[in-house]
Amino acid sequence: MAISAQAAGAAQGMTVVARTQTQLVRRRFFRHRAALIGMLVFGGIVVLAFSSIGFGPLPGWWDKSYLATGAVVDQGRPTLSLVPQFLGGEGLRWGEHPFGQDNIGIDYFALTMRGTQQSIIVAFIVGFVATTVGTLAGAFAGYFRKKVEAILMRLTDVMITIPVLIIAAIVGRSFGDSGIVVLAICIGLVTWPTLGRLIRGEFLSLREKEFVEAARALGTSSSRIIFRHILPNTVGVIIVSATLAIANAVLLESALSFLGVGVQPPDVSLGQLIDTYRSAMTTRPWLFWWPGVFIIAIALSINFIGDGLRDAFDPRQTRVRA
């Protein structure tokens, strides 16, 4: 029957292909051009940052270290050139120090790559911690209601009263010296409440649905209902907010480091590079340019990915694209 119906549809040019939810989401996401470009750019930045100077014990293809000082060549000007010769430039050239050098001769490409690595790591840890804690808290509050909800929601009330930058700055001041991982976990632990409220809202509406009632009637345990029945239905919201949380974390970390309460030397991050070299703006503007460009590129591409995901998971918002 089904086959013949499909054949009849095909004859009229209306084939409806059965697709799973995942396939639908993936198709919608890949149709979102900005999100795809964002994904490519972000992937490119990650590969560039981690392959060039290597990570941990792994060596990279770039021969200079972000720690080694050296002779300052041509006042540390960048040797990178992107203007082709026929336009009056110097042709496409990578050069000895593509991003220039700082005042003590450290190769700025290596330094920027190191900062990019650290910023991305911090942002992902913050996003992961905030999403996990926020999801769990929101799930329990939304599912169990009553006391659990009251306690958790009053807790988020308290946290929301404190502006994110303030609480993050205070936490950063305390834990900035303990390395980036501890710092990132601590920032994640204070930025989850908004996400928790979102997830709670989802759970509040889903727990009243029939399929939950059916599961409960069958005697399913609470944890199984939460994690196997309700949570998969909120995965769209979770993924989208996790992505946006990461994008915000990139900016938050760089702002904190810029204010001197985030990543502390000798650790490097993009915001901290900007802070270190902000007085060099007049003499060596490129020391200021590159980290900023990378922050914008990372935050922008993740924001676009988030936008694409939102459209993909929420068909109501999907628009006909030209």
């Binding site: 915001g271 703006m281 914008i296 935050a299």
Partner: peptide
């Protein structure tokens, strides 16, 4: 979107310069 992704401090220093 670009504005959302701008680090405020970076823009501010740029404006200054």
């Amino acid at each position: 979107f670009v504005c959302f992704s701008l680090p405020l401090f970076w823009v501010a220093v740029m404006l200054k310069q």
